[in-house]
């Protein structure tokens, strides 16, 4: 139940980040070169999350789908790329890097 709530909240955040970037930030010349905020958010979730959690994977897929909806690419293009990228990050983190995440 808690995971579902997280997924809904994160999905909304990604959705608003995409809208904010595509409708608001696009007016500012300097900010047009900003990396995609949704991508940054998903990467942040993937890195920060505990190795055994799956929320970041689901969020990568959902975030990708949302980005697909606003892009001209075939539907699912970003969804699959995000999902695979998130999987690779998780694999690398679990295999080679040990991060101490503070619970504070």
């Amino acid at each position: 139940m808690m995971a579902l709530k997280k997924i809904i909240v994160f999905s909304l955040i990604i959705y608003f980040l995409i809208l904010f970037q595509t409708s608001f930030l696009v007016h500012f010349v300097l900010l047009r070169y900003l990396p995609n905020l949704a991508v940054i958010f998903v990467l942040f979730l993937s890195i920060r999350e505990k190795p055994d959690e799956k929320t970041a994977l689901i969020m990568s897929f959902v975030g990708g789908l949302l980005l697909d909806a606003f892009s001209a690419k075939p539907f699912g293009f970003y969804a699959l790329i995000f999902l695979i990228t998130s999987l690779i990050i998780k694999f690398l983190l679990r295999k080679y890097i040990r991060l101490e995440i503070s619970k504070a």
Binding site: L19, F20, T22, S23, F24, H27, F28
Partner: peptide, 14 residues
């Protein structure tokens, strides 16, 4: 609706 608002605000701010 939200995009319209953001677009207008973006224009004004810019």
């Amino acid at each position: 609706p939200l995009q319209n608002i953001l677009w207008e605000q973006g224009q004004k701010t810019n």
